[in-house]
């Protein structure tokens, strides 16, 4: 059985594991290292850990200066302050110069829970996706997180990696090989496609089980690289299943739903329905309560799938 672990925890553990393997690796944090889990790296390589204090914009730009001096830099803070507060630093200093900085943003989405809307970042995929030359990745579990960290190191240039606070079920066995940038098809199906990322991948699989009991066979895609998007696999799904439901712990505006809808609309139009946060702010609550309240459930995904099928043109 694959391990259930928060992606942030897998991230910190992975950084600590590979600290010796990559001597140019530098990790930065903005006073949240015990939450983002970069403290794991600090423990084993304190000389290559730099705390920027509560000053995210400066941290992003300092990382750029380190990268321009030959370092591979991971910077971590909560997604709200990385993608939100530091949007323009990521755009103007990191991405426009192609600097080798990996922004690993944790506590993305509603499952931050009790901290509420000020800390629940549900527009980061949309923001980061709009920046040229920035890769945007959302791992679905701990094993995929570890693979992405190493992939990010091996591929020069800026990356945004979206990580979560809460524990997620393990989907992949340790040692699973991932093809960089490629969408992984987790379940075959021909009636509808469920394209999911992050914590929603597991819920999409549950939704597929529910649909199967009604004789509806859903294909489930793990879209962990949102940019550049594996358009080929998306269009193949559009062509072969004729309807798509996107599932993300993010606003329905501009994120995975936006990326899939744009791709499909331009080349092979089929109904695309989006499961996500409906253009509204989050609030305090237990993560599982909030997911229910905002409709991020397997049940809701299954309902949307049935609706998407009904919208197919005869």
């Amino acid at each position: 059985m694959a391990e259930a672990i928060a992606t942030r925890a897998a991230y910190g553990r992975c950084l600590a594991c590979i600290s010796d393997k990559y001597p140019d690796l530098v990790v930065m944090d903005a006073d949240l290292s015990k939450s983002t889990m970069t403290a794991d790296f600090k423990k084993v390589a304190p000389e290559r850990f730099i705390n920027a204090g509560i000053a995210e914009n400066n941290m992003i730009c300092m990382a750029g200066g380190l990268a321009a001096s030959g370092k591979v830099v991971f910077v971590s803070t909560f997604a709200m302050f990385a993608a939100g507060r530091s949007y323009e630093q990521i755009l103007n200093t990191l991405a426009s110069s192609g600097l080798n900085v990996k922004v690993a943003a944790t506590h993305a989405g509603l499952t931050v829970g009790e901290d509420g809307m000020s800390h629940q970042m549900v527009t980061d995929i949309a923001l980061m996706r709009s920046i040229p030359d920035l890769r945007v990745m959302v791992p679905a579990d701990g094993v995929e997180t570890e693979a992405m960290v190493e992939e990010a190191i091996r591929t020069p240039g800026p990356v945004y990696i979206r990580l979560g606070r809460s524990k997620v079920p393990g989907l992949f066995e340790a040692g699973t090989e991932f093809e960089p940038g490629k969408i992984r098809t987790l379940r075959e199906g021909s009636n509808v496609t469920l394209a999911a990322c992050g914590i929603m991948v597991d819920l999409a699989l549950q939704a597929a089980d529910m649909l199967a009991q009604e004789g509806i066979y859903a294909r489930v895609l793990n879209v962990s690289t949102i940019k550049p998007l594996d358009k080929e696999t998306v269009l193949e799904a559009a062509h072969q299943t004729g309807a798509i439901v996107t599932c993300e712990e993010h606003s329905v505006l501009g994120g995975l739903g936006g990326a899939v809808a744009e791709t499909v609309a331009e080349s092979w139009p089929v109904p695309v329905l989006r499961v996500g946060i409906e253009d509204q702010f989050g609030q305090s609550g237990k993560p599982e309560e909030l997911l229910e309240l905002y409709g991020l459930t397997a049940h809701h995904i299954a309902e949307k799938a049935i609706k998407a099928i009904s919208l197919k043109r005869a």
Binding site: L66, A67, T93, S96, S97
Partner: peptide
């Protein structure tokens, strides 16, 4: 723009950011 022209050490123009990158370079040193 960094990368466009030899001798340009960093993309600058959005005020304040260049100074922060210089601090990063000094940290690297």
């Amino acid at each position: 723009h960094y990368g466009s022209l030899p001798g340009i050490e960093m993309s600058t123009g959005s005020l304040g950011q260049g100074g922060s990158t210089a601090v990063g370079m000094a940290l690297a040193g």
